[in-house]
């Protein structure tokens, strides 16, 4: 199902991302931050989809671990990779905004620190898959599950420690003219996410088929 929706997703993603720049361009300026606040239209949706992706990865890892479904493992690899990609986007665009809004590149603020930690956990997940050797798929699954359950703990602990970021309450309170482009960008990022997920899962499937073929040939050669 995921694979069959690729052409449709491709069209919607491209359309959404072609329209988004104009919507952002036409959105009103923010009163205190001005132009730099426009980073928000891609920064925040990327962050939201990153957290979503982390949960996709954690849940599919759990399905893989307890049910032994190879398909779930492929979704988990794909979601882990995309979490890291989106995390990189969030962590790179955030400082650019912070430089203007707060005057520094990085602040040890709750949201920043938890995003960084989430990014680190899923990078660790990919590192295990890459360098862990045999059985690393299960280990990576465990890291993803633990990472998913760790999100609230990281958030609460860092939150009590520090807070500076604009609050989440800012989203429902977005002024008219800012709300629409924002939700549009969320949809655009969701569509991009599902598209990339489908493509990455396809790659994992092809690799699995290739491995199976090699084994088959090997068996035939040795027989």
């Amino acid at each position: 199902m995921l694979q069959r929706s690729v052409p449709l997703l491709l069209v919607t993603t491209i359309a959404a991302f072609s329209v988004a720049p104009f919507l952002i361009h036409n959105a009103p300026y923010e009163s205190t931050m001005g132009l730099v606040q426009k980073i928000f239209y891609f920064h925040a949706p990327a962050g939201i989809v990153m957290f979503l992706s982390a949960f996709v990865c954690g849940i599919s890892s759990a399905i893989f671990l307890f049910r032994g479904r190879q398909g779930a493992d492929r979704v988990a690899v794909a979601a882990a990779e995309l979490t890291v990609l989106l995390g990189t986007i969030v962590l790179a665009t955030g400082p650019l905004w912070a430089r203007k809004a707060w005057g520094v590149w990085w602040q040890w603020d709750a949201r920043l620190t938890s995003s960084l930690l989430l990014w680190m956990m899923f990078t660790a997940c990919l590192l295990v898959r890459r360098y862990g050797g045999p059985g690393s798929d299960k280990l990576a699954a465990a890291v993803a599950i633990f990472g998913m359950f760790n999100v609230p703990f990281v958030y609460v602990s860092v939150n009590v420690w520090r807070t500076l970021h604009p609050k989440t309450t800012v989203v429902p309170m977005l002024g008219p003219g800012m709300r629409e482009p924002f939700w549009f960008c969320i949809l655009a990022f969701l569509s991009l996410y599902v598209l990339l997920l489908a493509l990455r899962v396809r790659l994992a499937e092809q690799q699995a088929t290739l491995d199976a073929r090699y084994l088959e040939l090997d068996d035939r050669a040795s027989a």
Binding site: E30, S31, T32, G34
Partner: peptide
């Protein structure tokens, strides 16, 4: 766009 008088959010300005 008329800027609403919000204190805790982003306020649009023309």
């Amino acid at each position: 766009a008329a800027p609403p008088a919000a204190t805790d959010g982003f306020v649009p300005v023309t």
